[in-house]
Structure formats: structure tokens, C-alpha cells
Design a protein around this nucleic acid. Structure first.
Lengths: 418, 418
DNA sequence: CTGTTAGCGCTTTCAT
DNA sequence: ATGAAAGCGCTAACAG
């Protein structure tokens, strides 16, 4: 049906091998021959058969990017950065450094193909929306393995269910073992089988056993405790992690509030059972503990990472304790909901109640009032993850790097009762 | 290296054909045999080789979703909706109707496979970020064709360059011809070579020649001039379009402002040379014209569809004409920038200046003040596009459906000088 | 520098 | 109901 390599070969009066060679540009071919082949290619509107070449070459040019919620700018920014790095470094102007292409070590040793129809040096970056659903995460991982993806980038926090963690760890190991490069971005390192290997453990609120690493001393050192993902011989660094220092960021944020004089601080946490939620909450509590401030359970309310959750949580928080002088949200989006709820109750920000978020998404600086938050270098992290996925950058020592967030003090926080 | 069908067959003591049959569930297999095979599959952790099966079956389970900017919630919401429809209808709870699966007409005639490792009935929805760059759009289209994608969904406005339009039309025709279902969502129908074939035409404000179709009495007739993409025999309705009525929405929005008494209205347009930009601007002007309100060119400023552009455009607009009592932005994101700029100048919204946006993104209702805008049913449109891509819904008559936007009057607009 | 020739792993008639 | 065998279109040695 479709035009094949053989058709092109016939028209160019050469062998299929030759056509393949000029298309891949990885082997010397006479200039005249090349021209003839290229001519045939365009004449026939030939388009490489991906599956066929993937089958023969045992690898495809697919790079998968898994995100929890594609409609959330947090992931949008991350994914965008990864993608622009993966597919040629051009992409959005937003992507900052565009010249990444210059010194690349691709296989393009010989003059490249002419038109859209041919180029093989670029990867197809695709983003997969898991919707925060563990099963879909697994499904995508499998699907990507099916496609023999050349790399997979997992973004965002992980679910803390032991069974699921085990399953993901297994999937990642398979992937890595199959030669797919795996990069974790904004997600803690894989620690398979750390918490006791109880396959039937269930949601296990106890699963937190292994958490207190990576923040003791001061910041971004990786805890030396439990043996990590164990690159079991056949995976030389096929699995690297770029984690966000959520705990540290949250701690600094709450300390900022405390230093302003706040004592009654409400916390709008993310959905329970997720690493990001837990880490940020822990940071918040650590800050309070450090300053000897009690933190009654009723001052924390869990919800989704969205605006509606922030809104609802705020109502609940206010109902439970009207003495609150500040509310910290697990992320900026929820913080916006917090602000909305406060406004609707006729409370002023920060006059009556200070508000803080986390992430520093694009809109946060423009909110009214501008949001105090912790800036996560999403753009940079994504780009780095992209480069790692392309094997264009060396892995960090220990295969794990922790990325710090920066406290951004803006107008939504002030001294209480001001 | 990896486990193959043959390995499974050997372990289950059957032929590869049989294994294939139970995996695809499209052919009767004895229950006992099936069990044995399934057992072998899980024991061996067998994962189908996508490329190989795609090659043999001449089709893959990839569905591509092209977006202009994945970091923009507009596309995020759209993509999310498409995707959750494509990969089993579950996905985000936001997606509303989840039970779509029930009456599907898949090939699953016999009891399906058991675990994550096997399932073949689901598609792999992947989103590709073009960054609004025509070349990348083409690249992705080709890449997807390479992969023999089963469907492709193009979202968002198109670039109005004649050459590029031609190229895209050609690519889509090839795709459709190759059996890939193509769905345009939030983008006008493909009408290659409509506006006079002037390759260097540029933004061409005159290009409006053929626009008023598809919502008047007769609707979706394609301009009769140059021969279109010509579904040349072998493409029965492989290309369907879900367009947004940007012009009508914009007109109603501006009419709302006019009815409030505004006469000096500034307009922050999107990037020139894009259909969405032009249609919205045309709607705005049509409204003014209808009411005999002059619209000097200096009251329109073009920029990107982002917040920064809205901010800058507003400064420029105010510099040019301080008598403005309202500013309409091409989309909500830019409108937020407009608000920020206004606030920074000490102007009150809507007291001094009314502001309106377009799209009604999630955050718009929460802005301060809540944004008057035109609500586009992104969720529904995306879901429908997804169903069309899956062949799970019949095409609209004429292969084109126009989706209207709904005027949402909120707090950011009021009578002037209030 | 170019042609020949095996497969890559799976699907699919065609037999049995 | 199951097996045997012929490709699908391309790549990668290996010869020339």
C-alpha cells in the first residue's frame, strides 16, 4: 500500500541498503547516489515506517513523559521544558537556552536529509497524562516499554502505596533493563522494597518508615541509608533521579511566617498518600516544632492540588479555628483557592490572614496580592531531565540530585494583625 | 534479549500463533490453553513488542495530540479531555462521564487478558508540543505518520501562512490516506489555498474573504475555489473538524461592553498570522461596526497569548490613548496581564477600566475581580474529539461542527466611570 | 562505495 | 481449536 524503502530503491536504481544509509546518514554514500535517492524520496513522498525500523533497530525514537495532570501548569511547564530539550532544543522561546543543538553528539556525520519526510536524529517526545492514577501510570509505563521507548521521564510526586510502589519499581527496572533510559523528575528516588516488602500491605499509613533522609544536616545531600534502586548489574546508570527538596522548601516557608510573628497557622495539604504532600507537610511541621509552636491536628486539612480544594479547605479551617492568622497551601493553585475563600468571607490578605503557596507558577506573581511562595526551578529541572533522557548530560553523583526551592517573599504575607 | 512471543509459546507448549490469539482475544481459543498461555505470560513478564506488532498489523495504538503550548492551561484542559477519552474513558475524575467504556464496539470478543502486561484494547494517547511553531507541527505530523498512529488530533488555531497551510494540508491528506483518523479541534477546517495563494501574503487582514461560512444558514461548505485536500477516494471521512466560533463569541463579548456604554475600547490581540487571533479580532470589530463605533488602528495591539504580552500591550494602549474605558484581551491569560498592568498604574477594575478575556480558563473565575469572558467548552470539545479519534462517535454532518462560546459576565466589566 | 542477505517479533492465512 | 509458514519494512553485517 504505502511507499516503501524498496520502492524508493527501485526508483533510485540502488539497493535498499543504500537508501537506508542515506536516510540515516550514518554511513558514507557517494554524493551523486545520495542526490538520486533523496530525489526519489521526495518524488514518492516516502515516509519511513517507524515500527519497521524500530523492529529492525530494536529501538524507537519515542521519549515518554509521564505527568499527573496535564491541565496543571506545574506539569505543563515541566513537560514543556523536557520536551523542548528532547526534540532538538528549539521549541518554545520560553525554553531559555535554545542553542543546545550546536555541540550535540548525534550520529549525523554526513550531510543530513533534506526535508521533513526523513530526519531521524530527532526524538518524538510525547507526554502521557496519568491523572494521578497509579494504574494508568503502570499502563503507560508498559505501553512505553511496548514501543521500546528510548527514554521515559516520570514527573511529579509518587503515590505512597507499598504495592504500587513495588509495581512501579518493577516496571522501571524492566524498562531500564530493556535499555530505556529512565529519569525521575520532581519525584523522590525509587526505593523499592524498602519498607518491609509486604506485597499485600495496602495503603499502609505506616509506610512512612523510611522517610527522614535528606534534610537532616542542612539540605541537598542525599541520605546514605537504605540502598537505593540497586542498578542490578545490567543498568549502568540507566535510572537517574532529580528530586525537589520539598521538605526544605516548606520548612523555610513556614519559618518565614513564624519569623513574622505568626503562631496560629493553618495548613492546606495535598492529597494524602503522596510523597510531595507528605514532604511538604513534614517541612511545615518541622519548622513549627523547631520554634516550639504547637500544631494541633485540626489545623491541617487535606485536599486535591487544585483551587477548589484550597477554597473548601479554607472554609473548613476557618470553621474549626477562627484564630488563624496565616494559611499555608501545599501549592500555588490551592493557595489561589484559599485567597478566594478568604475574600469571600470578607477577610483581607495579608491584613487579616497571610497566605503562602508553593511552586511559584507563572500566575503566582500576578495574583492579587502577589503570592509568597517557594520557587521551584521547573524550567531548569525539566530541561535537565530532558538532557539526561537524551544521554546528553552526565548523571549526578550517586544518580540522584536534589533541587532546592527558593523562598519568594511577596505581598500575601505580612506581620499578623497589621 | 527480551522475552518474545516465541518464549511464551515454548513455555506454554503451544505455537506462537496461539499465543498471539489469546493476547489479542480476537479468535477462539480453548479455555485451558488460554490459561496456560496467560500463565506463561505473567511468569515470563512478557511485554508485547509494539513495533513488531505494529509492523505486522500495519497499525499502532498510538494517538497523537498536537498542542501549541502545553504549559498553557487552554491546551492542557483540551489535551487532558482528549486523552482521557482515548485511553479508556477513565482518567481524571474531572472528565465527567466515565462509563463510556460499557457499550464500546471493540474487538474484544473473548475474555480479555489479565494484567497490565497485555491489554491491547487501549490506545496510547500522547501529546506533542509544537510550541506554535509551524515546522515542529509538520515534524510531529510526519513522526506520527512514521509510527503509523491510529489517529491524530490537532488542537488550537492554525498559522495563516499560505505555504505552511499547504504543507499541513498535504501532511493531513497523507495521514488520512494512510488510514490515520484526523481530528481538528478548536481549529478551523482545512481549506488549503483559500485566500489567494500568495505565499508571502503575511498577516493579510484582507484574508477574511472566505470566512463567513459554517454558521450562517448553509454552514460548512468549503470555499469552492482551489481544489481542496481532495479526500481522493480512499478517505471516507477520515478528517473531521470541531471548530470554535471565535468570531461569534468575540462579537457578543464586545457587544456586551458596548451595551454597558463603552465606546473607547482597547483590544489586546494575539500573535498576528493565526486564525484564532484573526477571528476574535474580526468579531470584536464586527461588534463595533454594527454599533457605528469607530475603531482607530491604534486601539489594537498584538502580542503573544500570555500574561506578559497582556501587561505590555496595556502599557502601550494606555500610552497611545488615555481615554480607554475598557480593554478586551484575546484570551484570559493575557487579560490577567492587562489587569496587572492596570493595577500597577493605580487604575481600578472595573471602576476606571473594564476588562474582558476569552476562554474562561479555570483561574478566570477566581481572578480579582472575577473575569468577564467567553466560555469555551474545552472539556466537552476535547472529549468529543477524543471519541471521534477513536471512531467511537459519528462525524458531524459535512465533517464540520462549530462549537459556540458562552458569554460569562462577571465582575471585571461594568458601566464606564462607575 | 554499494549490493546481498539474514533476520527483528508478530500477525495471519492456510492447513490440519 | 491449533500449528506451520509466509511475510510486514527496515537495518546491519558481510561481501564485493
Amino acid at each position: 500500500m504505502a511507499v516503501t524503502l524498496a520502492d524508493v530503491a527501485a526508483r533510485a536504481r540502488v539497493s535498499t541498503a543504500t537508501v537506508s544509509r542515506v536516510l540515516n546518514g550514518n554511513y558514507p554514500v557517494a554524493e551523486s547516489t545520495r542526490a538520486r535517492v533523496l530525489r526519489a524520496v521526495t518524488d514518492l513522498e516516502y515516509v519511513v515506517n517507524g515500527p519497521a525500523s524500530a523492529l529492525a533497530a530494536a529501538t524507537s525514537d519515542l521519549v515518554g513523559i509521564l505527568v499527573n495532570d496535564i491541565a496543571d501548569p506545574f506539569f505543563g511547564v515541566l513537560a514543556s521544558a523536557v520536551q523542548s530539550e528532547v526534540s532538538g532544543g528549539s521549541g518554545m522561546p520560553t525554553a531559555g537556552g535554545a542553542g543546545t543543538r550546536t555541540g550535540d553528539g548525534s550520529t549525523r556525520h554526513y550531510p543530513g536529509p533534506p526535508n521533513q519526510l526523513v530526519r531521524t536524529d530527532e526524538k518524538l517526545a510525547v507526554v502521557c497524562n496519568t491523572g494521578g492514577c497509579p494504574e494508568r501510570e503502570l499502563t503507560y509505563l508498559t505501553l512505553l516499554q511496548r514501543q521500546r521507548a528510548s527514554a521515559v521521564v516520570l514527573t511529579g510526586g509518587a503515590v505512597e502505596d507499598a504495592v504500587h510502589a513495588e509495581a512501579v519499581a518493577a516496571a522501571l527496572t524492566r524498562l531500564a533493563g530493556a535499555g530505556t533510559r529512565v529519569v525521575l523528575c520532581g519525584r523522590p528516588p525509587v526505593t523499592s522494597g524498602v519498607d518491609g516488602r509486604r506485597p499485600e500491605a495496602g495503603p499502609a499509613p505506616q509506610a512512612r518508615a523510611t522517610v527522614e533522609h535528606s534534610h537532616a544536616g542542612t539540605a541537598s545531600h542525599v541520605a546514605a541509608s537504605a540502598p537505593q534502586h540497586m542498578p542490578s548489574q545490567h543498568a549502568p546508570s540507566q535510572l537517574v533521579t532529580l528530586a525537589f527538596d520539598n521538605r526544605g522548601g516548606a520548612r523555610r516557608l513556614t519559618e518565614h511566617l513564624v519569623s513574622l510573628g505568626h503562631r496560629n497557622i493553618g495548613y492546606v495539604a495535598g492529597p494524602p498518600g503522596r510523597t510531595t504532600t507528605r514532604h511538604r507537610l513534614e517541612g511545615h511541621r518541622a519548622a513549627l516544632a523547631t520554634h516550639g509552636i504547637p500544631d494541633p491536628a485540626h489545623r491541617t486539612v487535606h485536599g486535591a492540588y487544585d483551587r477548589a480544594a484550597g477554597y473548601d479547605a479554607t472554609q473548613e479551617l476557618l470553621r474549626r479555628d477562627a484564630s488563624l492568622t496565616a494559611i499555608v497551601a501545599a501549592n500555588d493553585t490551592a493557595a489561589l483557592g484559599v485567597c478566594a475563600a478568604l475574600r469571600d468571607r470578607g477577610l483581607r490578605i495579608p491584613g487579616d490572614v497571610s497566605v503562602a503557596g508553593f511552586d511559584d507558577l507563572p500566575f503566582s506573581a500576578d495574583a492579587a496580592p502577589a503570592l509568597t511562595t517557594v520557587r521551584l526551578p521547573l524550567q531548569e529541572a525539566g530541561a535537565r531531565a530532558g538532557r539526561l533522557a537524551m544521554g546528553r548530560e552526565a548523571s549526578p553523583p550517586g544518580e540522584v540530585a536534589t533541587i532546592r526551592g527558593e523562598l519568594m517573599v511577596r505581598a500575601s504575607t505580612s506581620v499578623p494583625y497589621s
